[in-house]
């Protein structure tokens, strides 16, 4: 069972250690590598999550697979979590670590959605405009979704900057419904 409080504690301790060793980005990359491997490979996910495989065997396999790719700090944390049966919290620890790193750097995570991939120039211009608007650095994740029809949408925290055709039609729908209700 995933316990977000446990994940926050592991992530907090790991972030403090990484910040002290000035290896925050490296540790984040390490955690991303492990989480990607778990997400992309069902057999590896099963191996990691099952209680039927012994902890020493899991540690040995992790050491063999990731030993030369991860920092020693990351490997120590992986070993500790496996010893304590917290393998299921790996993805949550990664997410919490990313949140801590963004909070530490004053960075806001933003999801940019468009019908087609944006050009590099558009990405740069959009990020600059949004950062100027919210007066914070943003870490964008660019995704495509044909349901927006056209235009672009930026979602961060609890806010949305909607410049899509679907969003405009939605606003028009709400306005027309409001007018209809007001008339009745």
């Amino acid at each position: 069972m995933i316990d977000s409080r446990v994940a926050r504690r592991y992530a907090g301790a790991l972030f403090q250690a990484a910040r002290a060793g000035e290896m925050v980005r490296a540790v984040e990359t390490d955690l991303g590598t492990v989480v990607d491997a778990i997400r992309s490979n069902p057999e590896f996910r099963h191996f990691t999550m099952t209680p039927l495989v012994g902890r020493d065997d899991k540690i040995s396999i992790f050491q063999n697979v990731f030993g030369d790719k991860l920092t020693s700090l990351t490997m120590q944390v992986l070993r500790l979590m496996i010893e304590r049966g917290r393998e299921a919290d790996l993805e949550s620890v990664h997410a919490e670590f990313v949140k801590l790193r963004r909070s530490e750097d004053g960075i806001v995570f933003a999801t940019v959605t468009s019908r087609e991939p944006l050009t590099p120039e558009q990405k740069v211009a959009l990020v600059e405009k949004v950062e100027l608007r919210i007066k914070k650095k943003i870490e964008p994740e660019f995704v495509t979704d044909v349901r927006v029809i056209g235009g672009v949408k930026v979602a961060y925290d609890n806010y949305v900057l909607d410049g899509t055709v679907r969003g405009s039609i939605g606003k028009l729908r709400e306005k027309l419904r409001y007018e209809l209700l007001k008339q009745s």
């Binding site: 468009s114 087609e116 558009q122 959009l126 405009k129 672009v152 410049g163």
Partner: peptide, 19 residues
């Protein structure tokens, strides 16, 4: 909607974002 129209829409929105 085609790529050209979509590009123009994105550019217009980027230019219209109020700072």
């Amino acid at each position: 909607m085609d790529s050209e129209r979509n590009r123009r829409l994105v550019d217009d929105y980027i230019n219209s974002v109020e700072v």
